[in-house]
């Protein structure tokens, strides 16, 4: 089973990363984007049970003061639902994921002994009146993903 945990900033708290992303888009000369929201995403591949995944999300991956999480679950990538007007960036197979090693260790420290594979990725959701696939491609290639070591999916 594949679990994806997306972390979002709670309403009422500012996220300086989103502000600077919007700025970068404007500098590239792309219009029609009113705001962009960034989510770190953690993919856990394991036979672990749902409750434990919630514990991992709640106690480890989310800062309970400023963040909240959502979990989606699927068996194969075809089943996966992707949000509209979004870009997801993941490392290509074989590229070292340094953060995932830390997460695996931290999960063990929680007392969870199941075997897990962890992958880390980034999700960007866009809002605005003039968003097109072409613009999203430009943004992705322009500064969100380096296609040498990362691959991206647009919807």
């Amino acid at each position: 089973m594949i679990y994806e945990i997306a972390i979002r900033t709670k309403k009422g708290f500012s996220n300086s990363h989103n502000v600077s992303l919007l700025n970068d888009i404007k500098i590239m000369g792309i219009d029609g984007v009113e705001n962009v929201e960034y989510f770190p995403v953690y993919r856990i591949i394991s036979d672990i049970d749902d409750k434990k995944v919630s514990v991992i999300a709640n106690e480890l991956l989310t800062d309970r003061i400023t963040e909240e999480f959502s979990i989606s679950k699927y068996k194969t990538s075809e089943e996966k639902e992707t949000e509209k007007n979004s870009i997801e960036v993941w490392l290509k197979h074989g590229v070292t994921d340094t953060v995932s090693e830390s997460v695996v260790k931290a999960i063990k420290d929680l007392g969870i002994t199941d075997n897990v594979i962890v992958k880390t990725g980034h999700k960007y959701c866009f809002n605005g009146s003039g968003i097109t696939v072409e613009k999203l491609n430009k943004i992705a290639k322009g500064f969100l993903a380096n296609t040498l070591i990362q691959e991206y999916k647009i919807r």
């Binding site: 290509k92 197979h93 590229v95 070292t96 340094t98 090693e101 830390s102 040498l148 070591i149």
Partner: peptide, 14 residues
């Protein structure tokens, strides 16, 4: 699609 493509070094300072 299946083979590893890492030709650029990725560092882990820790």
């Amino acid at each position: 699609k299946e083979s590893d493509v890492s030709a650029v070094q990725i560092g882990n300072p820790i």
